[in-house]
């Protein structure tokens, strides 16, 4: 093992971390908001609203992310209307294409997670709340959402990890996040073992932090369960 070399590539890859994190955080935040919206549409009573929303979820979950990135990066430029609009200044950039693709992608998965979490709320507890005179927003805010969050959080934590990994595909449309740098180093030096060990280590550390954060939040939210054990 050549420690100097390892230190060198480690330093080079560190430069990519901010971009990886930025892509993750921005698209997770935007994706979550979008997911809430999509999920509201999916649970609509009207087929005209529900069906397109459901199709959106199915389509983004049923096709590869890389394809979605290509469709946005190469495909959108073909639409003249878009090219002439102010949006083009953004969508010309690979960065925003990646953000858009990642956002749409995660919104579909997250919508599904929200649906599952809300469905997991026991009907009895909702009835109990109704019998106490709760309804509408109060019912959701005080009963449904708190229970749903506890159900959905573990699933969402793996979605976040998937997203940290998914940002690596941005490297294919020229973004120099961790994987982009890794690829360049590997094809320049062919020192496969060192390079992939370091890159793998960085991703594992990021994801370790993610699971740690979620574990702490879950611990905090499930305080009522912890008490019972003592």
């Amino acid at each position: 093992m050549d420690w100097l070399f390892i230190q060198d590539i480690f330093r080079q890859m560190l430069v990519g971390i901010p971009l990886t994190l930025e892509l993750t955080v921005v698209s997770l935040l935007a994706g979550f908001v979008l997911a809430g919206l999509v999920q509201a549409l999916v649970s609509s009573r009207h087929g005209i609203i529900r069906r397109p929303a459901a199709a959106y979820v199915e389509l983004f979950r049923g096709t590869p992310l890389l394809l979605q990135i290509f469709l946005i990066y190469y495909g959108l430029g073909q639409i003249d209307l878009l090219r002439q609009s102010f949006l083009w200044t953004l969508l010309r950039e690979p960065y925003w294409c990646a953000v858009l693709a990642l956002t749409l992608n995660t919104s579909a998965y997250t919508a599904e997670i929200i649906r599952g979490a809300v469905q997991a709320v026991p009907p009895g507890e909702i009835e109990a709340a109704r019998s106490c005179g709760m309804s509408g927003l109060l019912l959701r805010r005080r009963i449904v959402w708190p229970i749903a969050i506890r159900h959905g959080l573990p699933v969402y934590s793996s979605e976040v990890i998937q997203m940290v990994k998914a940002t690596s595909l941005a490297s294919i449309i020229t973004l120099n996040e961790i994987t982009g740098i890794t690829y360049r180093l590997a094809s320049d030096t062919y020192r496969v073992i060192e390079i992939f060990t370091v890159a793998g280590f960085i991703y594992l550390s990021l994801n370790f932090v993610v699971s740690l954060v979620f574990a702490v939040v879950e611990r905090f939210l499930n305080g009522h369960l912890a008490d019972r054990r003592t």
């Binding site: 990994k165 998914a166 994987t179 496969v192 992939f196 793998g200 370790f208």
Partner: peptide
């Protein structure tokens, strides 16, 4: 399982490609 599920798939593909 920890390593493979914790790093991007594309990285594993590159690893086998270069390796």
């Amino acid at each position: 399982t920890t390593v493979v599920r914790g790093v991007p798939e594309i990285l594993i593909i590159y690893l086998f490609y270069f390796g």
